[in-house]
């Protein structure tokens, strides 16, 4: 009698709570866009990563295909080692370019992959050889100033 209505309310509450969690996961979060089980790892070395952070997106032709998993400094090469997790559905040729790009003028930095022309594909754990570092705004400005100074001489 009284207990059943109480059960109903609690049941509704629990269902609503889990529904909210599902909405968070699928609609707000990115659970729908990538699945951790179907991914593979790639590495790349950059001389300067600028403001790249872990969890930054990896895009190819503007499509989100993976995430940066880890960033560390390789003490042998003195270069930044970036570990990427890429969706298994997307395969890239061995001579793919990895560039650190910025979305908009001051936006977040991400890695853009530009596929090359080779037949063989990158396998899990492979290294992307061709990389281009982040464009650091200060360097650009100082280069610009120097060239201006040289011009005026």
């Amino acid at each position: 009698m009284k207990r059943t209505t109480l059960d109903l309310w609690v049941g509704l509450f629990v269902v609503a709570g889990f529904a909210a969690l599902t909405v968070l996961a699928l609609k707000v979060g990115n659970l729908s866009t990538y699945n951790t089980s179907d991914t593979y790892q790639l590495q790349a070395y950059f001389s300067n990563i600028g403001g790249l952070k872990s969890q930054a997106s990896i895009k190819s032709s503007g499509v989100l295909i993976g995430r940066v998993a880890q960033i560390s400094l390789d003490s042998d090469r003195y270069e930044a080692k970036v570990t990427m997790i890429v969706d298994k559905r997307y395969q890239f040729p061995k001579d793919t370019f990895a560039n650190i790009l910025t979305s908009g003028l001051l936006g977040e930095q991400y890695i853009g992959l530009i596929p090359g022309g080779e037949e063989a594909f990158l396998k899990a754990g492979d290294e992307i050889k061709h990389t281009q570092s982040a464009v650091v705004l200060e360097d650009l400005i100082s280069k610009f100033l120097y060239s201006k100074a040289e011009d005026s001489q």
Partner: peptide
Amino acid sequence: FWSQMQAGVDFRYDIVNGM
């Protein structure tokens, strides 16, 4: 609005940690 949200919020990193 929605696509930026999905790109910005990571399930494991943000939602699971929040929970």
